[in-house]
C-alpha cells in the first residue's frame, strides 16, 4: 500500500513535469493562462463589491466574510483547474476519438491517469497568489482566527475538492452511456457555479439538494464557514460521508463505463 502511494505520488510528479514542459513550449499561451485568471477573479470581486455597496450582509456573510469566501472560491477553482480541468473536461473527446485507448493501455490505474494526465501547470502561480491573499485577509479579519480553524479549514477544503472531483467525474463518464456527451464539461462548469455563491442564499428543499445530491454547498461555503466561525464536526462529518459516497460511486461508474467502451475505429 505504502509503495503504491509512493509510486503514484512519484508518477503524478512526472506528469506535472511533463505538463509543465509542454505548457512552457508556448510562452504566450502560458502567460495568457495567468492573465485570463486575473481577469476572471477581478470580475468576481467587482460583482460582489457592487452587491455589498447596497446591502450589509447576505445571511451570516458580511462583506469581509464574502471577500474571504471569494478567495476560497477562487482557490478551489484554481485547485480544480490545476488538477483536473485538462483531463475530465476532455474525457468525452478522448472517448469519441479513441485517444482513451492509450490511457487504458498503460500499466497504471486507468482512473488515475484520466484524472491526472494533464496538469495545468500555470495554475501554480494563481495558487500561490491566492494563498497569500487568503492569509493576509484572514490576518486583518475583525475576529481572531485560531490555528485550529486553519487546520479544520484545510481538511474541509480537501474534502470539498474530492466531492467536486466525484461530481465532475460522474458527469464526465456518462459519455460511456451516451456515446457522445460533449456538453458534460460545460454542464459540470455550470453546476459548479452554485458553489461560488454564499450558501446563505439557498433555502428549503433546494438547500437540501445542494447539501446532498448536488453537494455544491460543501465545496466552498462550508470550508469558509469553518475557517471564519470555527470547526463544526457536523459539517465535517457530512463532508466526509459525501466525499466517500461520490468517490466510491466514481470508481463503480468508471468500471461499468469501461465495460461499455467501444474504442473509436482506426
Amino acid at each position: 500500500m505504502e509503495d503504491s502511494v509512493r509510486r503514484y505520488i512519484s508518477l503524478w510528479w512526472s506528469l506535472f513535469q511533463n505538463s509543465l514542459t509542454r505548457d512552457m513550449e508556448f510562452k504566450a499561451n502560458f502567460l495568457g493562462g495567468l492573465f485570463v485568471d486575473v481577469i476572471f477573479y477581478g470580475i468576481q470581486f467587482f460583482f460582489f463589491s457592487v452587491i455589498y455597496s447596497y446591502v450589509d450582509a447576505i445571511g451570516v456573510f458580511t462583506k469581509e466574510d464574502v471577500m474571504i469566501f471569494l478567495i476560497v472560491t477562487f482557490l478551489t477553482d484554481t485547485l480544480y483547474m490545476f488538477f483536473f480541468a485538462g483531463n475530465l473536461f476532455n474525457l468525452n473527446r478522448w472517448m469519441v476519438r479513441g485517444d482513451l485507448d492509450f490511457f487504458l493501455l498503460k500499466p497504471v490505474h486507468s482512473q488515475f491517469l484520466v484524472s491526472f494526465r494533464y496538469i495545468k501547470s500555470y495554475a501554480v502561480v494563481s495558487l500561490v497568489i491566492l494563498s497569500i491573499l487568503l492569509v493576509s485577509r484572514v490576518v486583518i479579519y475583525s475576529q481572531p482566527v485560531p490555528l485550529l480553524n486553519w487546520a479544520a479549514f484545510i481538511i474541509s477544503l480537501g474534502l470539498g475538492w474530492i466531492i467536486w472531483y466525484g461530481v465532475e467525474f460522474i458527469i464526465s463518464t456518462s459519455c460511456f452511456w451516451f456515446k457522445n456527451f460533449s456538453v458534460s464539461g460545460w454542464l459540470s462548469h455550470e453546476i459548479l457555479k452554485f458553489s461560488t455563491r454564499p450558501d446563505s442564499i439557498y433555502t428549503g428543499l433546494f438547500r437540501k439538494v445542494l447539501l446532498s445530491a448536488i453537494p455544491m454547498i460543501l465545496i466552498v461555503s462550508i470550508p469558509t464557514r469553518i475557517l471564519l466561525y470555527g470547526p463544526d464536526i457536523k459539517y465535517l462529518g457530512w463532508q466526509l460521508i459525501v466525499a466517500l459516497v461520490f468517490l466510491i460511486n466514481s470508481r463503480i461508474i468508471w468500471k461499468k463505463g469501461l465495460l461499455r467502451y467501444e474504442s473509436a475505429s482506426s
Binding site: S14, N18, V108
Partner: peptide, 10 residues
C-alpha cells in the same frame, strides 16, 4: 519527453 514519462509509467 514522452519517452521519459514512459520510463516512469513502466
Amino acid at each position: 519527453e514522452s519517452f521519459l514519462l514512459n520510463q516512469k509509467i513502466y
